[in-house]
Each structure stands twice: as C-alpha cells, then as structure tokens.
C-alpha cells in the first residue's frame, strides 16, 4: 500500500479525465471557487488593512477582528449556513472568506506599518499629496509583505475549498468526499494530490507576480 500506487492508479484511469466528474472540470471548478473567495477576501481585507496601516490607527480593533475571524470554525460555519440557507454557493463562500480575511488584513496592516518612516517623511516634505505618498511611496515598498499575506490566504483557500463538495458542489473536494463514502483511497489520494499541486501552482503564480510587480530595489534592498 503506497501513496504513489494510488496516485498512479488515479491518474492513469482514463475515466477520470472526461465528463462532468473529470479532472479538468473539477480542476476549473476548484479554481473558480478559490478565485471568487480570494477576490471577496481581498476586496474586504486589502483596503481596510492599507488604510489602518497608513494612518497607524485601529491596530487593536484589527487584531480583535482577525482573532475572531480565525476563531470561527470553517467547517462548522459551512454546515450551519447550509442548514440555515440551504444548498448554494453562499454557505461555501462565507467560511472561505472568513478564513482568508484575517491573514490578508493583518499582513497588509503590518506591511504598511513596517514601511521605513523616513522616505515617507521625505515625500511629505517634498510636497507629495497623501494619496501619492500611499500609492507611490508606501505601497511599492509594502508590496512583498502584502503579497505574502495574499499568498498564504490563497493557499488556505485552495486547500479548504474542498469543503464545497460536502454540500454537494464540485471542485477537487468531490474526489475526496466521494472517495471517503465509496471507500476509494485512490480517489482520496488523487484528489489530495491535485489540491497540493494546485497549491504549489499558486505559490509559483505569486512568485511570478512578485518578480514582475516588485521593484528590484525593494526585492534586494530589504
């Protein structure tokens, strides 16, 4: 009994490559859920983190919100919301967003707080407007840390989006849940491998974005 055997069995079964339960379909479904959840989380977490970080206010409130968000059990929330709202995408999205907002929020706040104050002082002294200071001085320097927060949020989402299958939706979690009920280890291991692979791909995407978007002066200077 070997994981590699399961992996091989799963991927070499041509039936797993076609149709509504084929790997491509489940793969794109999974990416779809993940991107949607990441987008909501970023829309909530980034602006709040950036503004609190820029003005240096509300750090304590932010820590409380982040702790509360982390404390809410993801799976419990999913089941509860499904009972209350019935089967739909909403009970899946809410726990994923609750899971992903704290790391984005806290890291973004920290990223802005850890920007060296002296270039900001120089920029203000040169007559830059506050919005220019934020966008042209602080954000470029804070970007690597902000990206790292988004990255860990994205990886947690990719891994956790498997719960969508529990409430009858698709995604790579299908293989794991179905494998559990059908006692098919092959499916479970195959699904887990795909999720881990997707997480690695997410890492690669963030690495590439970092190469492209972060100034060499920040990348190597810090």
């Amino acid at each position: 009994m070997n994981i590699l055997n399961f992996v091989h069995a799963f991927f070499s079964d041509s039936a797993h490559w076609h149709g509504y339960d084929g790997i491509p379909t489940r793969f794109w479904e999974h990416i779809g859920y993940s991107l949607e959840a990441l987008a909501y989380s970023a829309v909530i977490g980034l602006p709040i983190g950036v503004l609190t970080g820029h003005y240096g206010r509300g750090g304590n409130a932010l820590a409380l919100i982040a702790t509360a968000g982390r404390a809410l059990p993801t799976f419990g929330l999913l089941v509860l919301l499904t009972i209350l709202l019935g089967f739909s995408l909403v009970p899946v999205m809410v726990p994923l967003v609750v899971l992903a907002v704290p790391p984005i929020l806290v890291t973004t706040y920290e990223a802005l707080r850890s920007v060296d104050p002296s270039p900001v002082d120089a920029a203000r002294g040169m007559g830059m407007s506050e919005s220019r200071i934020l966008f042209q001085v602080e954000l470029p320097v804070a970007l690597p840390l902000i990206l790292s927060g988004l990255r860990s949020a994205a990886i947690q989402i990719v891994s956790t989006a498997t719960i969508a299958a529990y409430v009858g939706l698709g995604g790579l979690g299908r293989y794991i849940i179905d494998g559990l009920y059908q006692r098919s280890y092959e499916k479970v291991v195959g699904g887990a491998t795909l999720v881990a692979g997707l997480a690695l791909a997410t890492l690669a995407v963030f690495w590439a974005v970092g190469r492209f978007a972060v100034s060499p002066g920040v990348r190597r200077g810090a």
Partner: peptide, 13 residues
C-alpha cells in the same frame, strides 16, 4: 528637504 539617512525611495532608481 533633506533628512537624516536621506530617506530615499528604495523602489526607485
């Protein structure tokens, strides 16, 4: 305006 440690923008040439 010149300050201690120069306060250069590290992301700009």
């Amino acid at each position: 305006y010149v300050i201690q440690n120069a306060g250069l923008f590290q992301h700009r040439t």
